[in-house]
């Protein structure tokens, strides 16, 4: 929650935004963004030692990539894999906007290093629908107006789906407690609770 964040990182001579941008460009110059292990072209020799190979299933698709060990799963999903449905809110593990599923469990992608997701299965909001058929939780959020601006919504929905699967959506109080890690600045909370109660029945 520090607006001077990027400025803070410029102490090393490279801002984080600039660094990440450069990383993607470098990878693009050397190889396609998403490559398989067999045809992976190593990045420039000076960088090769620093990058980490990650083989991960993202929304069911196997992906092999070389990532900076500092890159979060959130930045990797958004900037490298162009899955921008996952939102960057606080980037400090405090707001829940970046919630995704790793091996079926809800986690914060902003505090997950991409390098630790080797051999894991990641599901983002883009992977929740079954083709053109929305997930019952997505339908319920639309039906109940579970949002205003919509920025926190992907995180709310990913968190809600996992919470129902955990069996922690029994009562309104339990839903509020289980969803307390997802902040909604528009305060759509009553509609979010209604949506989850509806979806809970549809998910049985």
């Amino acid at each position: 929650m520090n607006p001077d964040d990027d400025a803070g990182h410029s102490g090393s001579g490279v801002s984080r935004r600039g660094f990440l941008g450069g990383g993607v460009v470098a990878a693009a110059a050397a190889a396609p963004l998403v490559v398989t292990a067999a045809d992976a072209t190593p990045a420039a020799a000076a960088e090769a030692d620093e990058l980490v190979t990650v083989r991960v299933a993202v929304n069911g698709d196997p992906v092999t990539m070389r990532v900076d060990p500092r890159a979060t799963l959130l930045d990797t999903l958004r900037d490298k894999l162009e899955l921008t449905g996952t939102k960057k809110g606080c980037d400090r593990g405090q707001c829940g906007a970046c919630t995704v599923h790793v091996d079926g469990r809800r986690v914060l992608s902003c505090l997950t290093l991409a390098a630790t997701t080797d051999d894991r299965a990641v599901t983002t909001i883009e992977g929740l629908a079954d083709g053109d058929r929305l997930h019952p939780m997505q339908e319920a959020f639309i039906e109940h107006d579970g949002f205003q601006c919509g920025f926190c919504t992907p995180g709310q929905i990913m968190s809600a789906v996992a919470m129902v699967d955990e069996g922690h959506a029994g009562s309104d109080d339990e839903i509020r407690e289980g969803m307390s890690g997802n902040i909604c600045r528009c305060s759509a909370y009553p509609s979010i609770v209604s949506a989850i109660k509806d979806a809970r029945e549809a998910m049985r």
């Binding site: 469990r105 809800r106 914060l108 505090l111 968190s159 919470m163 969803m179 307390s180 890690g181």
Partner: peptide, 9 residues
């Protein structure tokens, strides 16, 4: 403690 996501991690 924390939130559902953080407790999973």
């Amino acid at each position: 403690s924390a939130s559902g996501q953080l407790r999973n991690m």
